[in-house]
């Protein structure tokens, strides 16, 4: 019995270690942060050397990069897209607007905190964060995955009611 547990733990550790080197990012440009993504993923900053590449469908992606402010209309699609993704999946909040509303704190159309609606693993601060900051965010995420700490998707399943209640409050579902 003990042996099996040890083997399972080791298996998960190996998986996490491998997983962090192949992260596919969903190509969903939710907001203005998307303008710094082409420099990040093309030749100059080249995120692909970390194994990070953009991908077009939600079913095969690992990272949901929320690039900036989240409008109510977008949030609805964002939640749908997040739920379509297969675990393990990670959410990165990009820019100050995902943290506390940023410059749009007083806008009637923009929600202020992303982590009320989706479990965020890493935040990248700034408006707008530079490609260097984005890469640093990716590196942090990789480190968290390696250590087994990027468990946002597990939290989402465990606290499903909490997230759904928050979503319902603003989306009127």
């Amino acid at each position: 019995m003990e042996l099996q547990e040890t083997l399972e733990e080791g298996y998960v550790e190996i998986l996490d270690h491998l997983r962090k080197r192949s992260l596919w990012m969903l190509h969903y440009c939710t907001a203005c942060g998307a303008v710094e993504l082409p420099p990040t993923i093309t030749s100059r900053f080249d995120a692909e050397r970390f194994g990070i590449a953009p991908f077009v469908t939600s079913r095969q992606s690992d990272i949901l990069l929320v690039t900036g402010y989240i409008n109510i209309k977008t949030l609805k699609r964002l939640v749908t897209v997040y739920e379509q993704m297969l675990p393990p999946k990670y959410v990165i909040g990009f820019g100050s607007c995902t943290i506390n509303g940023g410059i749009y704190w007083d806008s009637y159309a923009v929600v202020k905190r992303l982590d009320l609606y989706l479990p965020v693993d890493v935040y990248i601060a700034g408006c707008m964060p530079t490609p260097m900051a984005v890469l640093e965010g990716f590196r942090t995420l990789m480190k968290l995955i390696d250590e087994g700490k990027a468990n946002g998707w597990r939290k989402y399943i465990e606290n499903y009611d909490y997230y759904k209640a928050n979503q319902r409050k603003v989306l009127k579902w």
Binding site: T30, A31, C32, Y69, N71, K73, T74, R77, Y104, D106, S107, Y108, A109, V110
Partner: peptide, 14 residues
């Protein structure tokens, strides 16, 4: 449209 609506015109008045 409307996925990027941040109400600039309203925010500027404030």
């Amino acid at each position: 449209s409307g996925y990027l609506h941040r109400a600039f015109e309203k925010l500027m008045e404030q």
